[in-house]
Amino acid sequence: MAKVWVFTEVSADGTPAPSALELLTKARSLGDAEAVALGPGATASAAALGAHGASTVHASDDPVFTDHLSQPAAHALHALVERHRPNLILFASTHDSRDVAGRLQARTGSALMSNATDVVSPDLARTAIAGGSQLVDVALEGPVPRLILVRPKSFAAEPSGGTAAMVPVDVEIPEELRRARRLERHEETASGPKLEEARVVVAGGRGLQDAQNFALLHELAAALGNAAVGASRAVVDAGWIAYSHQVGQTGKTVKPEVYLAFGISGALQHVVGMKGAKRIVAINKDPDAPIFRLADLGVVGDALQVLPALIAEVKARRV
């Protein structure tokens, strides 16, 4: 039976990242699922990881894995790979996991696939290209373990009711791998629900014309209640709104009940982060904007004219 590992990010309080539970749910359908968790909280996360299908959790609470970027984690993971020879390692498409996977590949010389949306078998994975209009099956060859980075929310996490054996990770981290040091962490917290959890996402792009007009999106989100504000990469790059609002390839993946896109053209980079929404509404001046191909309801017009009217309408209906 194939040995399938899930590289798990954990919070210091022992909560595994939601993506780890999604990946374990998939991993146990592919073979014997195990998890590797490195950094403070790892040991405490074993119960939740076991309950989602990990038979073994390789864990270390050593802060070296969070105080220093990528090199200690890649080194420890490589040592474990040499010892236990997994067939496949699944990673979530996050900044930290992507870094570890890229470094591990240099050492193992194995195939690495990014942005997978499904894993068919330990050597076949699937991804979407051209804004999700085409699915591509990629065969992974060469040495094991094969490495796959999976987009968030590709699978639904389901508990297995199992328990995991906890195996401490005892890999020495050399001093020369501690040269990139994390000195400070800053969280840019927004009010209201988290982007990934909101039932409605109201997102804005270049069509909003000015950073100040994002106030209208915030007003609409507040009027709706369980809504969060999203943004396209173009406006994040332009500095109109913080990166934590970015939806898309290099930002967050959302699957709300309704996604409202104001002045967003629908570049591939954006679409991969929101096409899983149950209902999509697009408002754009350009009738040929690709976003209309995805929209259940499209409005050809100026987002800045539609927004105030919609805010008033939502407020009136919610009274």
Partner: peptide, 21 residues
């Protein structure tokens, strides 16, 4: 070490309704 073995078009959900502002 990796090779595309199949490409398939996804089922388009069909264009929705488009109205004028």
């Amino acid at each position: 070490t990796q090779r595309v073995v199949a490409v398939e078009a996804t089922a388009e959900k069909g264009p929705g309704e488009v109205i004028q502002a």
